[in-house]
């Protein structure tokens, strides 16, 4: 079920049904995300040390007050590196999903609203991309384009376009036959006006839920790519890369592995909680369960 409250025709501004916070869990997710975004933005202010300052006296230094997450194999401060790494993680996660939405939502809208051959052709193309396991598709694209943060963003966006298109299409199929859409058409509204004013606002809910879940995955995929040496390159502070670099000294300096991993899990958790919250507020039927 999708929230199908009809958009009032009298109001000038079409209101996109904005979700509520989505209960305690959703709220927790938004708060964690808010803090993480602040941390990423304020990294230059918050970081106690430079991310690249090599300190020979602190190689594998254990956590202490001035280095809460310890130091790595070059004596660099792990805490400062994690703060900066959030910038890359969050911007790639959010950027890739926004890019996928910008391409996938119009495809889904057109396919669902037009139907017929347009739908068939668009959806077959979309299904072909879905025929690949996500990470394998990303890796294949990186095999072609070469490793790098921007390539990772692009690869993740390409994986997500078909998912977005599918989700939007299926809710458009429901909305398209609603009385208010037929009414608008009878009134002589143009297709463009109907899609923009009625179909999109009523079909966007599931896409937003999907977006937050996809952002959670994007963080994992991006970290995985960097972990494999296919994403960001050293000496960039990046969470997956930090895990790969520290893995050889795991028992010697476990903090180099523990904290960046916790950082990944925390941001993924935030997006997952937000996704659950959004799902609930768009689908009150689930609340009963």
């Amino acid at each position: 079920m999708i929230a199908l409250e009809p958009v009032t025709v009298t109001s000038r501004r079409r209101r996109i049904p904005m979700p509520r916070w989505g209960g305690r869990e959703g709220m927790a997710g938004w708060i964690i995300l808010g803090v993480l975004v602040l941390v990423a933005l304020l990294a230059p202010v918050l970081a106690p040390h430079s991310t690249e300052a090599i300190d020979g006296s602190r190689i594998f230094g254990a956590p202490d007050w001035s280095h809460p997450f310890g130091s790595d194999d070059l004596g660099r401060d792990v805490f400062s590196r994690v703060l900066y790494a959030y910038r890359a993680s969050l911007s790639i996660a959010i950027g890739s999903v926004l890019l996928a939405m910008a391409v996938g939502i119009p495809i889904g809208l057109i396919a669902g609203y037009a139907g017929g051959w347009t739908d068939l052709v668009l959806m077959r193309a979309v299904d072909l991309l879905l025929a690949f396991p996500a990470l394998l598709l990303a890796i294949s694209l990186i095999a072609i384009l070469g490793p790098g943060g921007l390539v990772a963003l692009l690869a993740i966006a390409i994986i997500y376009v078909p998912i977005m298109a599918r989700v939007v299409r299926s809710s458009v199929l429901v909305v398209r036959n609603q009385p208010y859409v037929l009414g608008a058409r009878a009134r002589g509204a143009s297709h463009w006006a109907i899609v923009r004013g009625h179909v999109l606002p009523n079909a966007i809910g599931p896409a937003l839920v999907q977006a937050s879940v996809l952002m959670a995955f994007a963080i994992i995929i991006e970290a995985a790519l960097s972990f494999l040496g296919l994403g960001a390159q050293p000496p960039t502070p990046e969470l997956g890369l930090m895990l790969a670099e520290g893995n050889n000294y795991l028992t010697q300096a476990p903090w180099v592995e523990i904290f960046p991993g916790l950082a990944i899990a925390l941001s993924v958790l935030a997006f997952n909680l937000i996704g659950d919250g959004l799902r609930r507020s768009f689908d009150p039927g689930q609340l009963a369960r």
């Binding site: 795991l250 028992t251 523990i258 925390l266 958790l269």
Partner: peptide, 22 residues
Amino acid sequence: VVAAISIPEFWLGIMLVLLFTG
């Protein structure tokens, strides 16, 4: 469920090694 799907498998793997080997 929420915790388990938020942990990337490679980090879980590293932590398992830390526990079972280290």
